[in-house]
Write a protein that binds this DNA or RNA. Structure first.
Length: 273
DNA sequence: ACTATCCCCTGACGGC
DNA sequence: TGCCGTCAGGGGATAG
């Protein structure tokens, strides 16, 4: 579900509400989504004060005092929601964090249960998962992006989805960026000209920033922490528009499969050479 | 180095 | 109404 703009929207929402809050009792309703043994998980976080909330790629990082770091990945359908405590949790709510002196609870909800939460010490946490990540899609420079493509023989789409190459992009924004840059998803990365690479880099940045401004894309499950849907689906030009006319040329948007993922292209605007 | 395939899980949707 | 196959914002494991 959530890619960089959705995760960024969630992080900003959580930050507004949670910084400085002390975590109260925690309920783990489904141990499957908690990486650590539930007892250890609860003991580490209960009583901790939330200091900073950030993200790296699609990972959400909640740093507390006592050197406790909560790392989360929402995968496809994970949600962090701020919910009034009197509201009964539904069957897809898996972890509930009480917040001292707050009418709302922080809840982790996840229909498909692919997402997870884990406790890490700041040092070891960044070593394992996060160190393997490539630069953030919003932070990489054009020059570094072009240099990164040059030795890669892979299809550009699978490279952009590879979080060890560049982190934050997912299926929606890769399709949208490639369309805007007029590049076919199967183009070998090392065959892109410098101009094409710079154009693609620029469109990636533009699409992500515009999507953050719109508070993300809601195709089905995505919600912000206050339960609101995103707005960027209005600006999608190829994703989820199979069979519709391309805005630029009128050709019909096609759907294919690249690297196992559903892939949307305009056959005229994104020629494969 | 890279691709393809299966898997984790639940729900929505289309065809019969 | 029900049953079956397919698909879904992700990514890890494994085989080729």
């Amino acid at each position: 579900m959530p890619e960089l703009p959705e995760v960024e929207t969630i992080v900003r929402g959580l930050r507004r509400k949670l910084i400085g809050k002390k975590i109260g009792p925690i309920r783990v309703l489904s141990r499957q989504v908690v990486v650590d043994p539930p007892r250890r998980f609860r003991q580490a976080l209960q009583g901790a004060i939330i200091r900073e909330i950030g993200r790296k790629g699609k990972f959400i990082l909640i740093a507390c005092d006592r050197e406790v770091l909560l790392i989360t990945h929402l995968r496809m359908t994970g949600q962090f929601l701020l919910v009034p405590r009197e509201q009964a949790p539904d069957k897809h709510t898996h972890v509930i964090f009480d917040l001292e002196g707050d009418a709302c609870q922080l809840r982790y909800r996840d229909v498909r249960k692919f997402g997870w939460l884990a406790i890490k010490n700041p040092e070891e946490g960044s070593r394992s998962l996060l160190e393997a990540l490539g630069p953030d899609a919003l932070e990489i420079t054009a020059a570094a992006f072009f240099q990164g493509l040059r030795p890669k023989k892979r299809a550009i789409k699978s490279l952009l989805l590879d979080q060890t190459f560049l982190c934050g992009l997912g299926n929606i924004y890769v399709d949208e960026s490639l369309y805007r840059a007029g590049i076919h998803p199967l183009t070998r990365a090392d065959t892109l000209s410098r101009e094409q690479a710079l154009l693609l880099h620029r469109h990636i940045g533009q699409v992500l920033k515009q999507a953050i401004r719109a508070k993300g894309t809601t195709v089905s499950d995505y919600r912000g922490p206050e339960g609101i849907v995103g707005g960027f689906q209005r600006y999608l030009r190829v994703y989820d528009r199979t069979g519709e006319a391309c805005e630029a040329c009128g050709a019909l948007i096609q759907k294919s499969r690249v690297g196992g993922r559903g892939t949307h292209t305009c056959p005229a605007c994104q020629p494969l050479h």
